[in-house]
Design a protein around this nucleic acid. Structure first.
Length: 857
RNA sequence: GGGCGAGUGGCGGAAUGGCAGACGCGCCGGCCUUAGGAGCCGGUGCCGCGAAAGCGGCGUGGAGGUUCGACCCCUCUCUCGCCUACCA
């Protein structure tokens, strides 16, 4: 290494800057990055039996082309966590890969007339290079690229496994359809105006035959987060998304009429079976299969018009906040199973086809939506639940509260029962007659995975005129995407026109058949990639079961909270499906989850290339170095908070690193600007100073260790700055160069190493040269231990309050008893003056002597 | 409409029942410099009194409450951000 050290030639030089070499990140950082790569320092030995394993996963990036400051914000603290754990002797696995399928590649391809694969792969090359400039310790040997046939063939393989297990199925139903992206899963439709999560276009409904995964099987299990250390808001969001409701399913029969024989079963789901006697009409969703059958001939024109209008509904009133309830009567009645009453049937779009049974019994007295509808169309409102004394009171809105002592009214034989008992009794009675049962409904839907796009995993299915739906045999996998694509300048899936891809012999009968041209939702790629990291080259199976058994679930996952009900839910569902087809033992993928915040652009919006508000870190790295950028991102604020990007203040952390550099290279130097340079603070002896320094260093170590463990990087860095400031105060004094000084310097470097890996490695190596010791990387050092004896104090200063206001401070021995503290406080002149002869009514010695409060009334 | 989160100096933020404002930016003063958008030292919540040391008052969106003591816990309320959207 370099031979220069500042201590050899000291104070005569007039300009201190001429004396020591300046910190030049631009030359230091690439040199160490190359050295680490050369030594393979971060290649993980997945088979090491001795060390405790630590699987640290960070959400893999989409290869949009450029790494921006937001990527750094996610990755560099994650890297610090990895380095911190390595210094604790753990075998850390920190892989990286690319989420390489998806629409932006296709859009770029159409726009620039290039192949999506070429576009994606060249972006990945660029991003690999940029990622390396961070100094992050990724194990590049484990890299996964999802657009690689060696990866996506296993998506196909999983699909076939799930198909065999009954977890995948094909169904024709109204699906959410985006004009650009084709089919969307329910959670990929956002907002009141129902726009596409990816492109923002308005989403329509279309009837299509599509592939689904049966994730609703897992609804209850997904509500169970026991054993997971996940942030509460994410658990809440997932719980709300799954949306479990308990209630009853009740069977109404269609009443006979001139146009219908009656008897058709109309099932409704309700969470309020206790209000069944209050049902005064019934509402079917526009998609309900019995709408057409039950519509009276004289109502047909109006109903048809309404159904057509409902299909376009989102366009009509996309911005209206309180949507008017609309609907039309279909000219048939239903029979209420509890009292035989005939109630009219309506079709209205406030009832959703996809939730519950797509039909409701309307109880306007006790449901706000039903109330609004009844008022608008002049339908009867009958109160059936009332709090004591309210029985006769007129309703001016739906009564939905749950007041104590509520009882059923107007409910036939159940009148007078407490409401909750009444509900149970009604369901029980219906059940005995085969007209109802207790039921649970979920908001969660099955996962619609078909996408009408080229750039994704082909769904491995063949349609044969004679044999129907035929799975592609495992041996024929992967079904490869053709390399040459011709978009004809449109977004239509080019696979539909690719005769070579389309035409295939049926695996069963050998006759001519056609391939499925839909591809899979790219969230499938991200639902298992961390298992593949453990064996990216494995060819005979998707995962290495021994390694997966040993290394997963992932110990720590870091990434953004925006995937709360998408990726993070799909990942849990997929692992459960893998478990159920016998591939993994566990049912949960990630033990501990941390959601870092998001860095927003200067416009306050989420950074994205399409918005054009990304911040390129390359300029900052060129000017200050990667360590400064890393440290600045960690210092900005709490990691889970994020915030708008502003480089204001980056000079502060850069100055800090320069000061650390100076402390190492020029401990004895003195600054001309300091009038007290070279002198100990007034009244402090050399021994005091040395003991104080040692104490400060060990207290810092204690606190910094806790901050790393809790991912509190901002306060961690603040404490290191404080220690550096303390050291700087003693620079050039008799303390500099003492054993205590040396220990403090050593601790400072070790504590800083995970966050600022390059400068600490450089300074560490120079320190070793100076001491004549052989080189060992600082990143291979063991995390130091706090010396408890160094952090104990002989005295302590206790704040003294009078009636809760700070008035004085008193210094007592560290082991002073409460009585001694009390006596010391009362002996203070200032306290005597404030008390003015009065005796305190009460003396609170709080927190084991942390504070004293005198109460005077 | 519902859910989650957050409101603290000029700014980023610290302190989760015990000295509010750590650390950093910015600003002010000084040193050093041919020079400084470099470096170093000191100061810096607001208001008042004081030459100063210092003293006093106010202060964590607002209003109440619990407590010896509240940025922190409770109730109500306002503002902002994110998520969600008629879920029977």
């Amino acid at each position: 290494m370099t031979e220069t050290t500042g201590t050899n030639h000291i104070a005569e030089t007039p300009d201190p800057r001429a004396r020591i070499e300046r910190y030049a990140a631009a030359s230091v950082e690439p040199r160490w990055q190359a050295r680490w790569a050369e030594l393979g320092m971060y290649r993980t030995d997945l088979h090491d039996p001795d060390r405790k394993k630590f699987y640290l996963l960070t959400m893999y990036p989409y290869p949009s082309g450029d790494i921006h400051i937001g990527h750094w914000y996610i990755i560099t603290p994650t890297d610090a966590i990895a380095r911190f754990h390595r210094m604790h002797g753990e075998n850390v696995f920190l892989p990286i890969g690319f989420d390489a399928f998806g629409l932006p590649a296709e859009n770029a391809a159409i726009k620039n007339n290039i192949n999506p694969r070429d576009w994606t792969m060249s972006n990945i090359d660029n991003m690999r290079r940029q990622l390396r400039t961070m100094g992050a310790t990724f194990d590049w040997e484990a890299e996964v690229v999802t657009a690689d046939p060696d990866y996506y063939r296993w998506n196909q393989w999983f699909f076939l496994q799930f198909l065999r297990a009954g977890l995948a199925y094909r169904k024709t139903s109204p699906v959410d359809w985006c004009p650009n992206d084709g089919t969307l899963a329910r959670e990929q439709v956002e907002g009141a105006d129902r726009h596409c999560w990816r492109c923002g276009a308005r989403v329509e409904k279309r009837d299509l035959a599509q592939w689904y995964l049966k994730v609703t099987n897992y609804a209850d299990e997904l509500l169970d987060f026991s054993g997971l250390q996940w942030p509460e808001p994410i658990k809440t969001q997932q719980t709300n998304w799954i949306g479990r409701s308990e209630g009853g399913e009740i069977v109404f029969d269609a009443a006979p009429s001139e146009h219908h024989a009656g008897g058709a079963e109309l099932r409704v789901f309700t969470t309020r079976p206790d209000t069944l006697f209050g049902a005064t009409f019934m509402v079917l969703a526009p998609e309900h299969p019995l709408v057409r059958e039950l519509t009276a001939p004289d109502r047909k024109a109006e109903v048809d018009a309404y159904l057509a209008q409902a299909a376009n509904r989102t366009e009509i009133d996309r911005l209206s906040t309180d949507r008017e309830k609309t609907g039309v009567a279909i000219g048939s009645d239903a029979i209420n199973p509890v009292n035989g009453e005939r109630i009219p049937i309506f079709v209205a779009d406030y009832v959703l086809g996809g939730y519950g049974t797509g039909a409701i019994m309307a109880v306007p007295a006790h449901d706000e939506r039903d109330y609004a509808f009844a008022i608008r169309y002049g339908l009867p409102i009958r109160r059936v639940v009332a709090a004591p004394g309210d029985e006769e009171r007129e309703l001016d809105s739906a009564y939905v509260a749950h007041a104590a002592g509520e009882r059923l009214v107007n409910s036939g034989p159940h009148t007078g029962l407490p409401a909750d008992e009444g509900g149970v009794a009604i369901v029980g009675e219906l059940e005995s007659r085969g007209k109802g049962r207790a039921a649970v409904t979920y908001r969660l839907r099955d996962w619609l995975i078909s996408r009408q796009r080229y750039w994704g995993t082909p769904i491995p299915v063949i349609y044969c005129p004679t044999d129907g739906i035929v799975p592609v045999p495992d041996d024929d996998l992967p079904v490869r995407l053709p390399d040459t694509v011709d978009y004809h300048g449109s977004g239509e899936n080019p696979l539909n026109r690719d005769e070579a891809f389309l035409n295939v012999a049926c695996p069963v009968c050998g006759g001519p058949a056609r391939r499925e041209t839909d591809t899979m939702d790219t969230f499938i790629d991200s639902s298992w990639y961390w298992y593949r990291y453990l064996s990216p080259e494995k060819s005979g199976s998707p995962i290495d079961r021994a390694l997966v058994g040993e290394w997963t679930p992932v110990d720590q996952y870091t990434g953004g909270a925006e995937h709360a009900v998408m990726h993070l839910l799909y990942a849990r569902e997929w692992t459960k499906m893998m478990r159920d087809v016998g591939l993994v033992e566990q049912g949960e993928p990630f033990r501990r989850l941390f959601n870092q915040g998001q860095i927003l652009g200067l416009d306050g919006e989420r950074m994205s290339k399409s918005r054009g508000n990304t911040v390129d870190p390359d300029d900052l790295v060129a000017r200050y170095g990667a360590d400064t950028v890393r440290l600045f991102l960690m210092f900005m604020g709490p990691w889970d908070q994020g915030g708008p990007w502003s480089p204001t203040g980056i000079g502060g952390v850069h100055r800090f690193l320069n000061r650390v550099w100076t402390l190492l290279l020029d401990a004895s130097g003195r600054e001309p600007g300091d009038p007290d340079a070279g002198m100990l603070p007034a009244g402090e002896s050399d021994a005091d100073a040395r003991a104080g320094l040692r104490s400060a260093a060990h207290k810092t170590l204690r606190d910094v260790t806790a901050d790393y463990e809790a991912f509190r990087f901002n306060t961690m860095i603040a404490k290191l700055m404080e220690l550096a400031n303390t050291l700087f105060r003693y620079r050039g004094t008799s303390v500099a160069g003492s054993a205590e000084w040396d220990e403090a310097i050593r601790l400072l470097l070790l504590m800083l190493a995970p966050a600022a890996p390059h400068i600490t490695e450089e300074l560490w190596s120079r320190r070793l040269v100076e001491r004549g010791e052989p080189w060992v990387s600082i990143h291979a050092q063991t995390w130091p231990e706090v010396d408890p004896s160094a952090v104990v104090e002989s005295t302590r200063e206790i704040p003294v309050q009078v009636n809760g206001k700070l008035r004085d401070k008193v210094v007592v021995a560290a082991d002073a008893t409460p009585a001694e503290i009390e006596a010391a406080v009362l002996a203070r002149d200032k306290i005597k003056a404030i008390l003015d002869g009065r005796a305190p009514d009460r003396i609170v010695v709080a927190g084991g002597g942390k504070l004293v409060n005198l109460v005077v009334r």
